[in-house]
Design a protein around this nucleic acid. Sequence first.
DNA 1: AAATATTGCAACCGCTGTCCT
DNA 2: AAGGACAGCGGTTGCAATATT
Length: 224
Amino acid sequence: MGRQPCCERVGLRRGPWTMEEDAKLMNFILNNGIQCWRLVPKLAGLRRCGKSCRLRWINYLRPDLKRGAFTEAEENMIIELHSRLGNRWSKIAAHFPGRTDNEIKNQWNTKIKKKMKLMGLDSLTHKPIIEQKTESSIAESEEIHQNLEFQESVSIPPPEDYQPICDTNQEKNDYSIKNLEMGSSIMFQNKESVGNFSMDPFQSWMDNPFIWDGFTSLGDYGFP
DNA sequence: AAATATTGCAACCGCTGTCCT
DNA sequence: AAGGACAGCGGTTGCAATATT
């Protein structure tokens, strides 16, 4: 009845990943792909549970991840999407190729919420906070409004499950990890653009989404 | 320079819907 | 059909790095 348990749970490592573990996981997935996360740690020679491996891959090791700080335009897009989608971080992340839901969630909790508060907006309702304001807080708020004001004609691309961004499935998957079945290789491709953005900072990184320096250190661990 | 507070983020926990037997 | 494991998701925590006192 049912499936086999995910893992033994005894003698498994927890906490921060070492570079050696990262290299093992990366090496395994690049060579074999992913069929079943439960099997990954065993086959890759890791003393981790499959869930932990999955998280590490998705949030840190995926070669298509965009590293680095969020731009002003990205933050504004997150706010806009959050007003429509709420705390559906994975849905929001679908609009940001190379960004993870965890990354966006962290950005929201650590920075954007504060930014919205300074703007006098409730991060839950996205409506103005009604409160007694001092002159200095009003001035501060106005200054922030001026600096952070949404740029005009921001167009949010719809998530893929709402509306295809391309005519064919092949194109639709151009910016995704494909063929993760066991025994197949992983193919990374990038589209020139996804959706319709008129903001230059965002467009510039959209045009160059394959920004990742994780491979540079892999040579030490036997990667080609 | 040391102590304390704050920040940022990686990783874990627990829940939910889906899939498998 | 039912029980149980799985993948995925969102909330939370722990801790290192940085800023402030």
